[in-house]
């Protein structure tokens, strides 16, 4: 088990290989569908004018994400009324939906890690090699267990996106994950896809 502290430096990332179990500690941020679309349109492709507190939020998240980690997660949160937020359930969501955006987001913010489930495609894998960064797989559905690794909710931005889609800045301790895409072009997901395709083709010719 390799222990990683956020922010993560380049050398550490280059040492990680597909299959390595890791344990993360430090401050990370959740971000999923709405956040990725918002980031790309507002700050990367500039197809949408910044509105409301967009620019302020951007200035705050930039240093957080530099060398940092984004977690594809829409948590269940207690204490919404008192603003004493606490994560109750916080497993990963399916990452592939961010495939159109993730590579550009990684390059723009110098993201070192993306945590999610189900794996991502060639665009993200290319960004992992360039930035460099890794894709870390958490166990899908293990929400109550993973919530225990969240020691503190530091801040929340864009709560108007809804609880699952907001950017939750969280402090984690010993957050468990496995490297399934590394900075050397390795992807467990591409490998399993191709092996299972071969088996499928054999099964399809049986009448």
């Amino acid at each position: 088990m390799q222990e990683l502290t956020i922010p993560i430096n380049e050398e550490t990332i280059r040492c990680l290989r597909v299959g390595d179990p890791v344990s993360l500690s430090g401050v990370m941020m959740t971000g999923r569908d709405t956040v990725h679309k918002w980031m790309v349109e507002t700050f990367i492709y500039n197809t949408r004018q910044p509105q409301g507190d967009d620019l302020d939020v951007y200035e705050v998240i930039k240093p957080l994400l530099n060398g940092g980690v984004i977690y594809h997660c829409g948590p269940v949160v207690a204490g919404l009324e008192t603003r004493e937020h606490q994560f109750v359930a916080a497993g990963p969501t399916t990452s592939i939906r961010e495939e159109p955006y993730q590579g550009d987001v990684m390059r723009h913010f110098n993201l070192r890690g993306v945590i999610g489930k189900g794996g991502m495609g060639p665009k993200t894998l290319a960004a992992c090699q360039e930035v460099p960064g890794v894709y870390l797989h958490a166990i899908g559905g293990a929400a109550s267990l993973i919530a225990q690794a969240v020691v503190k909710v530091v801040e929340v931005y864009k709560l108007e996106f809804g609880v699952p889609e907001a950017m939750w800045v969280i402090e984690v301790k010993d957050f468990p994950a496995v490297v399934t895409m590394d900075s050397h072009g390795g992807s467990l997901h591409a490998e399993i896809e191709s092996k299972s395709r071969t088996v499928l083709e054999e099964l399809l010719v049986i009448e």
Partner: peptide, 11 residues
């Protein structure tokens, strides 16, 4: 989840 009455999965 069973012990704490918390959601098995956040979704």
């Amino acid at each position: 989840a069973r012990r704490d009455s918390t959601p098995i999965c956040q979704d």
